[in-house]
Write a protein that binds this DNA or RNA. Structure first.
Lengths: 196, 196
DNA sequence: ATTATAACTGACAACCTGTCATTTGTCAAC
DNA sequence: GTTGACAAATGACAGGTTGTCAGTTATAAT
């Protein structure tokens, strides 16, 4: 979160900095983002920057926060308009995003977040993909509905990784284990009571 | 991948470098890993390092690769021993990992990868958690089995983010859209044909 | 006009990475 | 034993980074 000093600035100056930052975050991946570049573009001194924000991550989180509000609001609205039905909500949410992408209403910054997210995902999903290729012929299709097997495999892996992570962190392993097993069954049998 | 020069080194020297690197990767998060520290610990010169590996990521990928083989092999074995049944396989995989964690057989490096993964996850799942709190009261439970609602919400969000990411990247949006809708139904109705 | 407070500055120390001209080691051939 | 050729190792260097802090400037209030 920015310091009070930052909020004391006149809006123009605040926005100039935020715009410069957004531009930089959109141009290069997170690790390569240079505070030098940002302060040059925003025409402020190094010292000033560090009175506003703790570090790069603080700045990034703040920009994310600004966008999050809009997204949160939108998500809630969609869910309400769908009478709380998750399936319908998430089908609609996707379409709304697609529409915005096509209409170019999705800010460059958000697009970049998604692409950044995608690089991040790749780092963890590429291994998962390799593993899938390595084992897929051994997976029995007997009990499975015909569905996107790789996707399903990723869900299971995702869940497994998450479970192990929790286990590494947690003291109460048997609790983590029960949670894990419950989630496996959600994946197997779904979350909806009846078929459509 | 390391250069041929690296493989020409005698095994002792190779391992000394890899051990130093592992230690460093286990001590600080990826971005803070310092090649300086590694070469000091491994007692090699800066120039040598750069003839062995392209950069930090190259080194990291290689160490990951060394571990991956073992994990891939294990996964396949478990799947085969479960006659290809995914549910049973993933239940067992978790238990095997837990066992290794408890027996301290899981290398410090792998543990750190999981913890590192967890920091990463947090960055993307924290927002999702906040969002969940923001909308959960509006979600209708009518059609849902009683199950871990937050987990389910994460799965939907995960899927949505992935779908949007694909849409941002892809040219064929209607294909991405169909895939997405299929996945939503997998989440809703599960992947197994019959209830247990 | 004086003072107190808030905001700003840029030089600085302490790091980092990747390069490259040069030195050192090794081994085969003469 | 000497030479030459190639592989490997070196560390100083250029050009970057971040975060700090003592000093300066602006603003507002008495």
């Amino acid at each position: 979160m920015p310091s009070q000093t930052f909020f004391n600035l006149d809006i123009g100056k605040q926005e100039k900095l935020l715009e410069a930052a957004k531009k930089e975050f959109c141009t290069v991946p997170y690790t390569e983002v240079s505070i030098n570049k940002i302060i040059q573009a925003a025409e402020i001194s190094r010292g000033s920057f560090y009175t506003y924000f703790i570090d790069k991550n603080d700045l990034f989180s703040y920009i994310l926060e600004l966008n999050k509000k809009v997204l949160n609001e939108m998500t809630r609205e969609v869910i309400v308009s769908c009478d709380g039905d998750m399936r319908e909500s998430f089908l609609q949410l996707f379409d709304i995003f697609i529409q915005r992408i096509e209409a170019n209403q999705l800010s460059r910054f958000l697009k970049n977040i998604f692409l950044y997210f995608s690089i991040y995902k790749e780092k963890f999903e590429r291994p998962s993909h390799d593993l899938f290729l390595y084992v897929k012929d051994f997976i029995s299709l007997k009990n499975l509905k015909s569905s996107d097997l790789e996707f399903v495999f990723h869900l299971f892996m995702h869940n497994l990784l998450f479970g192990i992570t929790e286990a590494v962190k947690s003291a109460n392993i048997s609790f983590v284990r029960e949670q894990y097993r419950g989630k496996v069954d959600i994946l197997c049998y779904g979350i909806y009571k009846e078929e459509k």
